[in-house]
Amino acid sequence: MSTDYLTPVLTGTTLMRANPVSKLFAAVVITLALMASIDWVSAAVVLACELALMPLLGISVRGLVRRIWPLLIAAGVGAYGTALLAEKTGAVLLDIGPFLFTEGSVAAGIAVGLRGLALALPGIFILLSTDPTDLADALAQKLHLPHRFVLGGLASLRLVGLLVEQWEMLGLARHARGIGSDGSPVARARNLLGQSFGLIVQAIRRATRLATAMEARGFGSGSRTWARESTFLPLDAVVAAVGLLVAAGAVTAAVLAGTWNFILS
């Protein structure tokens, strides 16, 4: 985990111009379609569409894999777990003691794995193509979420971006005061814990101070205007439509293929 997770470099040039609300809409629609059913067809359709749209992000395959490898592992493990625990239907494929895999359970596992990946990617799309300030502007102006909370959240997001720097400073300061990170593994672990706690304390301290600074500038009551208008472009209609299309396509394909498997049924 490094700094670039907290302050990501934006790469998606086309998507970046779209309004965050439309991107959010597309992601939510796709996610809902995926969540509604656990089957391999709908998951595969969504995943294929997402991969096809990948060039929009302007990130190389290697760059992407570096970013999402934990997701790949998680998808694999999820698939395996389901294959192990699902109802054992169909022909037996493998049977070693308690480990029994059948055609039915393996199909379920594959569905869960594909679905997991397909679920994860919309978040990555938004992350790589959305500036947090634009997101806050859009949430407050277009979705009319309460502005105090939106801006409070935005300000704290910035504070956390500074945490890495603060962590380093804190390490130096503790070293200078005589409790550095040396000694036995136990001492090191304790020191790490102490430093993490110190970091949270500092973050809260800064937040309290920041709240004062915000109030000193008239934040917190009454109505407010927005210096930057959050607007919808024709591009946003396209983004929303693509989201709807992908979702509808996945559902239709699954129903036609007869694999549709509603989670509440």
Partner: peptide, 13 residues
Amino acid sequence: VVDIVVASVIAVA
């Protein structure tokens, strides 16, 4: 305001 900002920082952390 301080509730909002501190809650946000805790949440983000």
